[in-house]
Design a binder for these strands. Structure first.
Length: 165
DNA sequence: TAACATTCCGCGC
DNA sequence: GCGCGGAATGTTA
């Protein structure tokens, strides 16, 4: 069972998806996000999920403000493949304000030539911002791509003080 | 099998 | 040196 809850930020309203294992997905603001669905899922949320949600909201707002989140809720990454989960945990080890290239990440997960596959895994990342897929740049320090829109990637990097070409 | 959020090498300017 | 075209490469649906 999945519970969806909104998170207001200075950049718009994100939507968090919780499974019984933790935060499973985070959506960028859309034009229609903001007002909940007819069914009031917030009311049905367990005490535990509400607690996770508070952590998520705090971490997300901190990250958007350019500060490293102090605590994160448990993440439910069970939707990913083995390879994707390796990539995502490698991403979480990148310190705020630092960057990696797709090739470097590929090396860290044990498949040095899977650079392009790393790009795919980043694109499949269900929890942007908190799992810092935006800190991965191309080898020549250009932006590369970003599923949620390159503007987001630029903005997030700027908040962390990272300059890109 | 085709599609990629890459990278590397070679060419022409 | 810069820009562009094309091939190699691992993973996924």
């Amino acid at each position: 069972m999945i519970t969806k809850l909104p998170i207001p930020t200075t950049e718009g309203v994100f939507t968090a998806h919780y499974s019984q294992h933790g935060l499973a997905k985070l959506d960028f603001p859309t034009a229609k996000s903001g007002i909940g669905k007819p069914e009031n899922e917030a009311a049905a949320a367990s005490a535990q999920i509400r607690r996770w949600h508070r952590l998520t909201a705090g971490a997300l707002n901190a990250a958007i403000a350019g500060r490293a989140p102090r605590v994160l809720p448990p993440l439910d990454l069970s939707s990913g493949t083995e390879f994707q989960r390796r990539v995502w945990s490698a991403l979480r080890r990148i310190a705020s304000g630092r960057t990696r290239s797709y090739a470097e990440v590929a090396g860290e997960v044990g498949s040095p030539r899977a650079t392009r596959a790393v790009g795919g895994a980043c694109g499949a990342n269900p929890i942007p911002v908190l799992v810092p897929c935006h800190r991965v740049l191309a080898a020549n320090h250009t932006l590369g791509g970003f599923s949620g829109g390159l503007n987001w990637k630029r903005k997030l990097l700027a908040r962390e003080g990272i300059a890109v070409r």
